[in-house]
Amino acid sequence: MSARLLYASFGDETALLAATAEARRLGVAIHDAYTPHPVHGLDEAMGLRRSRLPWICFTGGAVGLGLASLMQWWMSAVDWPLVIGGKPFGSWPAFAPVMFETMVLLAGLSTAFALFLRSRLRPRISAPAVPPRATQDRYVLALAERDGSFDRREVMSLLHRHGALSIQEGDT
């Protein structure tokens, strides 16, 4: 999907929030926003859906727990049972720590990898086109100029009204 984008840079998160909220109210398609830190309320202002990462985290944990239980039971009681300290072959209380640790490990790793995959975060040879100073002290709103409803003048005035420091155009 190709569209012309309008990058409006703000010096402050309140301005960004207000501009975003108003743009959304006006029905302007909000492509994205770029901020140096997470801005609370921005996801609501942009109308983003809740992340599904918790489900991935839960699944990862459940798999870890299951795998660890299976592994310990199979190795200790099925494949080569040995009498150790007079304990039963399936010493479940003793298996608990490894079960817990493996659960946490897989849950954490799957969460992190899901984040990286979903957000397309991966080692890159060339740096991405980040709006100037968006990772430092600028709050940038990217509006998509996609259909006829986009009134360029109205949008520009909206952005200026909210204190845009600069406005640039660009492609996705």
């Binding site: 040995l82 009498v83 150790i84 300290g85 007079g86 304990k87």
Partner: peptide
Amino acid sequence: HCENAPCETVCPVIATAHSS
């Protein structure tokens, strides 16, 4: 040669175990 040998329980690599 304890039946409930405390040494066996703690060895991480099963270097000590009980015979039949």
